[in-house]
Design a protein around this nucleic acid. Structure first.
Lengths: 96, 96
DNA sequence: AAACTTGTAACGTTACGCGTAACATGATAG
DNA sequence: CTATCATGTTACGCGTAACGTTACAAGTTT
């Protein structure tokens, strides 16, 4: 199919475009988001996915839309899922 | 916050807009998608989420975009996550 | 009646989100 | 130099979720 480039991990965007510009430490940001430092660290380092709840937290704490965050993750998930190229048959096909 | 109405479950859309119109049985659709009948049944009845891999399968089998399917799930996940109203502090806040 | 469809329960595997506790390292403050 | 802080990471545990196979009851079709 479409061999695009791997989408950017949302954690990287959160780190580069939000936390770093604001001069926040991971520890402080985690406190404000009310999640463990471990959880935020894993997300920022691309070792964890951005969950729907985390999207809501980040959106609230940055006045952005939760969709913008979760869709980034969705794009990445789809890219990974597409790489597996699951075999399927057309649902509109008449026969096998 | 925004008290919208609960987004439609993607499984319902798949059932109403694709499988039923095509006159497909759950059993036949599951075979074509190469997933177990149980898995598809759960999705169609809203008892399971639409996974990224399932989005790719459905997209391939119906010539639609995987995003259109996964975003429906994302919207629903966000609506559920927002209901929990997690407490957070503004990341741009100067003090506590 | 025989064949098919469907929902669902039981059981198991694999994966992941999140938390606490803890440790080693590197950087900063005094 | 030393005490404090920030960070990444590992070890455990807990709960949830996606998926598969097997199997059964109930309803539908042929």
């Amino acid at each position: 199919m479409i061999g695009k480039r791997k989408p950017t991990h949302p954690g990287e965007v959160l780190s580069e475009d939000v936390i770093k510009p604001l001069g926040l430490t991971v520890t402080e940001a985690a406190k404000r988001l009310r999640v463990s430092r471990k959880t935020l660290s894993a997300l920022l380092n691309g070792r964890a996915s951005l969950s729907p709840e985390m999207a809501v937290r980040i959106a609230k704490a940055t006045n952005t839309s939760p969709e913008s965050w979760l869709y980034m993750q969705a794009k990445l998930d789809l890219w990974i899922a597409a790489k597996k190229s699951p075999k399927v048959q057309d649902l509109k096909a008449i026969a096998v």
